[in-house]
Design a protein around this nucleic acid. Structure first.
Length: 478
RNA sequence: GGCACCGUAGCCAAGCGGCAAGGCCGAGGACUGCAAAUCCUUUAUCCCCGGUUCGAAUCCGGGCGGUGCCUCCA
């Protein structure tokens, strides 16, 4: 079998053929550092983190580039509003970005270029486009001439005539064609600016990604990703610029993740229905958020609601419970992922990074772990122990690619128990005392009292579990 | 108006021409003093109508319903 990736450019799932055998270069549009990240950024982040992990797992030497836009209209406007410098605003949001993404267990990309560090590369590219007659200067501005690129609109499946009709009233009269876009913008007072052959100014948004991608990954690289909303005009413009400058297609595979919706509608600031990552993580476990985001294929839209996240928490809890049992029985014994599990998992990954199908393989493994533990808790059987060790190794391996089950199972359980204790206002010792009291009542066959203690604790979200080895408690998922 | 995408169980969701994955909830059973957890079993005229095919959730045509892009947006 081989890896297949859906390519937005062709509209088909295609076999992934890397430029360099065994390697994969991927560029993903990162964020503009002007505000807190929202769930949409979480999805893009998690999706491409999963793609990155999958590529590595499948044996590719993966290079993952995710940029930061640190000079842009939105940044300038926001900084002005708040009366701080653009530099301060950018640094503040950079810190918050990492807080959010680290919480979601995103691996750091191989390279995280910042636009302002690549101004020279952008200028070189712009100069080349002007030389070739694909861009023109008007005063201190430089525009890309869309009509000079025959393939313009191919990625977004639009033709320029339709675009012209749909185009809104153009403010900038200097453009020859309303579709032309800025490569370089004339400096306005108080804005960040750099010297250039066209006077002091700053780069346009689209050229940033073209230049950074090219500098780090080369004139043509394997994969370019981003949210669906970037297809037009951002990625369309990137293709025009990069193809124009180098004379060849810049990207072999275009990947785009679907939106996060709220009540089936796109989440957006203008609708006032957006959630920041911080908002969501205050209420839900970060791995449950990840699990939820990966329960739908990356290209489909995903609807967000508290009830779905609760469902994901229940699911995650079940996975960790299985892990706790396995680790207890195994006591450090390590195995190797069964071939059957591995091949099912790889089949899922190779099918356009089908995380939902991969999750099904994980669930199977969890079920298998529980079945083996059921049996092993009754009587020890060395053959079954090694079977469990193998299956549990597979379970962890899959979790590692999905980026969930990152914590030690015991730590996870301890964590939710601690959370529940603080909510219930009880101490662990108090609960243990009640458990002892109940155990005594049970011994005395005083089941009414025993049940009363159990029910009272249950109301506080504390679940008692009797087993041959004694009674333990856990936090009920509410 | 132009261009895309989507419609699978109570809810979420895979599926890409060959017996309809998985999760959450529900039901029954095993286990338990009773529970919980776990295990086993169980829950689908695949939006509608035509067509192609030995065979269609899947391909084609036509409806109906939903969403997105065409402007900064993950």
């Amino acid at each position: 079998m081989s890896l297949k990736i859906y390519n937005t450019f062709t509209g088909k799932k295609e076999e992934f053929k890397p430029i360099k055998q065994g390697e994969a270069g991927m560029y993903v549009c990162g964020v503009t550092l002007y505000d807190r990240c929202h769930l949409g950024h979480a999805r893009a982040g998690v999706v491409f983190d999963f793609v990155f992990r999958s590529l590595s797992y499948l044996g590719y030497k993966a290079t993952y580039v995710r940029n930061f836009t640190d000079v842009d209209d939105k940044i300038i406007n926001r900084a002005n509003q708040r009366g701080i410098s653009t530099g301060e605003l950018v640094e503040e949001n950079l810190k918050l970005f990492y807080e959010d993404m680290d919480a979601l267990f995103l691996k750091r990309p191989t390279f995280e270029p910042r636009a302002t560090k690549y101004i020279d590369a952008m200028q070189k590219m712009i100069a080349k486009l002007i030389d070739k007659g694909l861009a023109y200067q008007v005063g201190g501005d430089v525009f890309y001439s869309v009509s000079s690129f025959r393939e313009y609109g191919k990625l977004s499946k639009k033709n320029t005539n339709d675009l012209m009709e749909g185009a809104r009233v153009e403010v900038n009269e200097a453009k020859r064609n309303p579709l032309d876009f800025a490569l370089w913008k004339d400096a306005k007072p108080g804005e960040p600016k750099w010297d250039s052959p066209w006077g002091e100014g700053r780069p346009g948004w689209h050229i940033e990604c073209s230049a950074m991608g090219r500098e780090i990954l080369g004139e043509t690289f394997d994969i370019h990703g981003g949210g669906r909303d970037l297809i037009f005009p951002h990625h369309e413009n990137e293709i025009a610029q990069s193809h124009g400058a180098s004379g060849k297609p810049p990207v072999n595979f275009w990947m785009h993740n679907g939106f996060v919706n709220i009540n089936k509608e796109k989440m957006s600031k203008s609708l006032g229905n957006f959630f920041t990552i911080k908002d969501v993580l205050e209420k839900f476990d970060p791995e449950a958020v990840r699990l939820y985001l990966l329960s739908t294929h990356y290209r489909s839209p995903i609807d967000f609601a508290d009830s779905y996240l609760k469902e994901a928490e229940t699911h995650l809890n079940r996975l960790y419970m299985a892990a706790v049992r396995a680790e207890k029985v195994l006591d450090g014994k390590v195995g190797e992922m069964p071939e059957k599990t591995r091949s099912a998992f790889i089949t899922a990954l190779e099918d356009d990074f089908n995380s939902a199908a991969a999750l099904a393989v994980l669930n199977d493994a969890a079920n298998g772990v529980n079945v083996l533990c059921d049996s092993l808790e009754k009587n020890r059987d060395e053959k079954k122990i090694s079977e469990l060790a193998d299956l549990y190794a597979g379970f962890k391996e899959i979790g590692g690619v999905l980026g969930i089950l990152n914590r030690k199972p015991a730590d996870y359980m301890a964590n939710i128990k601690a959370k529940r204790l603080s909510e219930s206002g009880m101490t662990g010792a108090e609960i243990e005392e009640l458990i002892e009291k109940r155990t005594a009542a049970r011994k005395a066959k005083n089941f009414a009292e025993a049940d009363q203690i159990r029910d009272a604790l249950a109301e506080k979200g504390i679940e008692l579990m009797d087993s041959p080895g004694g009674t333990t408690w856990t936090a009920k998922i509410l």
